[in-house]
């Protein structure tokens, strides 16, 4: 449909399927015909704007009046500074808004207008000018006649992608086998998280849960400096955190190759959920279920950490336990499988 046809159709109201009812009859507002009402509305609007100024000043007063920090002023048990800064600034803005809307509704000019929509297509004249300018540019640059320039330019633009790709290397280096290993080693003690005290199997009672870490996180060298610290500690902690649980030995149903992985009903599992890696220690001691608070994956710790509910795809990795010479719980080895969520190379 051409521009002219649209214009013709718009001009011809008789062909419209529904007749345009036109504007309804204009009815004035009380403020338009009654000076008293008009002045009252004016005072209302001015009052709101005035209240807004008062609130702005009160904001400044509250800012300097109320103490914050270690011993803050309180109002109804809340920090007085926060309450009054928020209230005064919020009300200052709100009163400007209310005043402006009241102004528009009651006093600003009140006439109905209709505005026809314009076609979105440019006029033929504008389109011709644009096309001739483009063709002029192509002719002037002679890009069609000199393919060598054109092709080398395209090559140069393509080569600009290389620096961007090479810079991606800074995201590395690749983790190598770091995802498959933790700091757990044969004979490393399982110690209480936070306090670092080693744990004996007989110290635990049926139904006990211990949030534990590998002993090396609390070890110090001969100068008294931690063996693992800083970023390395955080990275290793993210993989090596474990929980110890003690159940009645008769409730536990280990796989045949896992029968000697526990000590007197004490089992050790990774604390990192195999779904997306949240730390989990929500253990129901009567059902033996371990729940992840993030997405409700549920693992049965009496049954080899099997997934019994939720989005996790792999059983919770179990750390084989044994007892050292002094009777403390230690690891038999590192985890036999990678801990935490699945990743590409694991398939």
């Amino acid at each position: 449909m051409s521009h002219d046809e649209i214009a013709r159709r718009d001009g011809d109201h008789a062909e419209e399927p529904i007749v345009n009812p036109g504007m309804h009859e204009h009815q004035p507002r009380p403020t338009d015909i009654d000076d008293v009402a008009g002045r009252r509305a004016e005072r209302q609007v001015a009052t709101f704007f005035g209240l807004s100024s008062v609130m702005a000043i009160l904001f400044c007063v509250a800012y300097f009046t109320f103490d914050i920090g270690d011993e803050p002023d309180l109002f109804l048990g809340y920090g007085a500074s926060n309450i009054f800064l928020g209230l005064t600034l919020g009300l200052a803005l709100l009163f400007i808004g209310i005043g402006a809307i009241q102004w528009a509704r009651k006093l600003m000019s009140d006439v109905e207008i209709s505005e026809a929509r314009h076609p979105s297509r440019s006029s033929d004249e504008d389109r011709d000018i644009a096309l001739s300018a483009l063709n002029q540019g192509i002719a002037d640059s002679a890009i069609g006649r000199r393919p060598l320039i054109r092709n080398s330019l395209l090559g140069a633009l393509g080569a600009l992608g290389l620096p961007a790709i090479v810079a991606l290397r800074d995201l590395g280096p690749l983790p190598g086998t770091a995802l498959e290993q933790t700091v757990w080693r044969k004979g490393m003690r399982v110690v209480n998280d936070v306090s670092g005290t080693p744990i004996k199997a007989e110290q635990m009672e049926i139904g006990q849960l211990v949030n534990a870490e590998p002993g090396i996180f609390f070890a110090v060298d001969e100068e008294g400096e931690p063996v693992v610290e800083g970023v390395e500690l955080q990275q290793e902690k993210a993989k090596a955190a474990v929980i110890l649980v003690k159940m009645r030995p008769e409730d536990i149903t280990p796989y045949p190759n896992r029968e000697n992985w526990g000590v007197e009903g004490v089992l050790c599992y990774s604390k990192i959920c195999t779904h997306v890696g949240c730390p989990i220690s929500l253990w129901e001691q009567q059902t033996h279920h371990l729940l992840c608070p993030c997405h409700q994956s549920t693992f049965d710790l009496a049954d080899n950490g099997k997934v019994i509910f939720g989005p996790a795809a792999r059983a919770l990795p179990q750390l084989p336990l044994m007892v050292d010479d002094e009777g403390y719980l230690v690891a038999q080895s590192d985890f036999p499988e990678p801990v935490g969520p699945s990743y590409w190379e694991r398939g």
Binding site: N192, M204, E205, G207, Q208, L209, W283, Q285, Q286
Partner: peptide, 11 residues
């Protein structure tokens, strides 16, 4: 359902 935190482990 709460696990035990015995005095030997959590002093």
């Amino acid at each position: 359902q709460m696990p035990v935190f015995s005095d030997e482990v959590l002093k």
